[in-house]
Amino acid sequence: MRAARTAYPLKWRIMDALEGIAAAIWPARFRRATPYLMLLPAVLLVGLLVLGLIQIADASLRTLDTTTFQFSDDYSIANFRRALTEPLFLVVAQRSLVAALIVTAVTLVFAFPYAYLMVRTRSPRLRKFLLIALFLPFFIGQVVRAYGWLIILGNQGMVNEALGLIGVAPMRLIYNYPAVLFGLVQYMLPFAVLMLAPALTAIPEELEAAAGSLGANWVRTFIHVVLPLARPGFIGAGVVVLTLSLTDFAVPAILGGGSQDFIANAIYDQFFRTSDQGLGATLALMLVALGSILVGLVFALFGAGTLAMGRSRA
């Protein structure tokens, strides 16, 4: 009699067995805790980061003995004192912070029209072009892009060669602060567009049409309707660009010509050049603190924007 087998196929039996195993491992009475189980990977990941931070905090309190290149057994705040009093670290911190703020502002200004056009255009071809142009840089690493700028903007680069055609002598376009800012803006632009686009998509086009029908011109509609509704996108994009710029290493190292270090470069120097991991750890902790304070300020003043996943105040 093969009918019984057909009535209860093999794959059902397998599913029953799997359900049985699942019930044994995770009984039904634990069902309310299931959502928390889903959080486990994230908790583990964050836990590892916290463990790393604890180790860094421990290292930051130990000083290097340059006669043995061993770290002290005792704790002290000598590294923090150095970090807060040596002019080098103050200069580098100030440069990083100012650059992060400038890059964030400029990137948002450039990213907004790009995102707006990408979301609102009625031409599928243009939208595809803008999307491809947006994602293409992601396939090219930051370092390669920075080296690309060396080729374009170098003394014998394309720009200087073009200038030479009209009689302009080669000029130094790279290895300075503006070049670092330029490189960072170019690197951050896709991130900002990607963060702004969902916020702009969420603004009903009808609202802009309604404003127009009530007599508002394009500028007034833009200022009073689009910009306020796009605020969550600005906040999300701003936070991402601000933190990435503040902690960047490669662009200052490559486009700065060695004289435009950011905090990350100073941390690298301590870890790998002077072997002073204690001071490097101190600078790393201070960078984490600075970034956290800035993000906290933004969240406190403006909410979390798109990062709040629809729960922002905006």
Binding site: T66, L88, V92, G258, D261, R273, T274
Partner: peptide
Amino acid sequence: QVENESEWFSKFKAIMQG
């Protein structure tokens, strides 16, 4: 060099990065 390198590097950097 080893005992003073860190200080020399910092000093050089402080001048050049300033």
